[in-house]
């Protein structure tokens, strides 16, 4: 028996919105500690990882670990029947569920849906706990804007960190450009830029993945970029009181 109730159903909708362009079918894992999801994008360049802790739910019960294979596209069709202010409850009765039930509750109506599940034998990747040599925290809409603007100039974006801050740069056929974001210690937490640089990095990534993933900036006003030279970058959106949504993106290595 599994039951998880989102106080803020809109949050769950934003999470699905953020990953729907990157992953098609996913295994949703539920156990006593909460819900998690890990899936590679179709080109196997990126890995999406979601972790939602049971304490963040209005109601949470999971007697036995469950794996529920679902199509993100079909999940979206069900969620489109809910309002952004609804409370959303996920529920299954059986140990090997073939469907996942949804209840959408608002002041004046209650809706029930069942999504058919699939059996997906997807390889799970072991993401090692890593000490990153550069960790940058910045406003998520600033990062989204820089990726979108520089992505118009070139499909690969360079990221260089130093004690002073983080520099994004592009060199394309039409020309080149760079944006340096400076550290600030403003008292407004959502506008703060912090850099912890033990070792500077200089990495290159396909910016299209950032642009696909940056829909997640609706989840948090800040984004955390963790980097080490020649390692995948991690973009992390902290989901207040619940957990986090991460994108691991493999770098482009110059031959």
């Amino acid at each position: 028996m599994f039951e998880a109730k989102f106080e803020d159903g809109g949050l769950f909708k934003k999470i699905v919105e953020a990953i729907k362009e990157l992953v098609k079918n996913v295994n949703l894992e539920a156990n006593g500690t909460g819900i998690s999801l890990q899936a590679m994008d179709t080109s196997h360049v990126a890995l999406v990882a979601l972790q939602l802790n049971e304490k963040g739910f209005k109601k949470y019960r999971c007697e036995k670990s469950l794996t529920m294979g679902l199509s993100i596209e079909n999940l979206q069709k069900i969620l489109k029947c809910s309002g952004n202010d609804d409370q959303i409850t996920l529920r299954t009765q059986d140990e090997e569920p073939t469907t996942l039930s949804f209840t959408f509750e608002s002041k004046n109506r209650i809706s029930e849906f069942q999504l058919n599940l699939m059996s997906l034998d997807q390889e799970q990747l072991g993401v090692p706990d890593t000490e990153y040599s550069s960790v940058v925290r910045m406003p998520s809409n600033e990062f989204t804007k820089i990726c979108r603007e520089l992505g118009n100039i070139n499909e690969a974006i360079g990221i260089e960190t130093s004690k002073e801050g983080i520099k994004f740069y592009v060199k394309g056929d039409i020309g080149e450009g760079q944006v340096s974001v400076k550290i600030n210690d403003t008292e407004k937490p959502e506008e703060r830029v912090e850099c912890e640089v033990d070792e500077p990095v200089n990495l290159s990534f396909a910016v299209r993945y950032f642009n696909l993933f940056n829909k997640a900036s609706a989840l948090s006003s800040q984004v955390i970029l963790s980097m080490s030279q020649d390692q995948p970058l991690v973009i992390e959106y902290i989901i207040e009181e619940m957990g986090s949504l991460k994108l691991y993106l493999a770098p482009k290595i110059n031959d």
């Binding site: 360049v45 990126a46 072991g126 090692p128 995948p232 691991y248 493999a250 770098p251 482009k252």
Partner: peptide, 12 residues
């Protein structure tokens, strides 16, 4: 050259 994510993380 674009690397694959699985080349960094072992499948568990």
């Amino acid at each position: 050259m674009q690397k694959k994510i699985a080349s960094f993380f072992k499948s568990s």
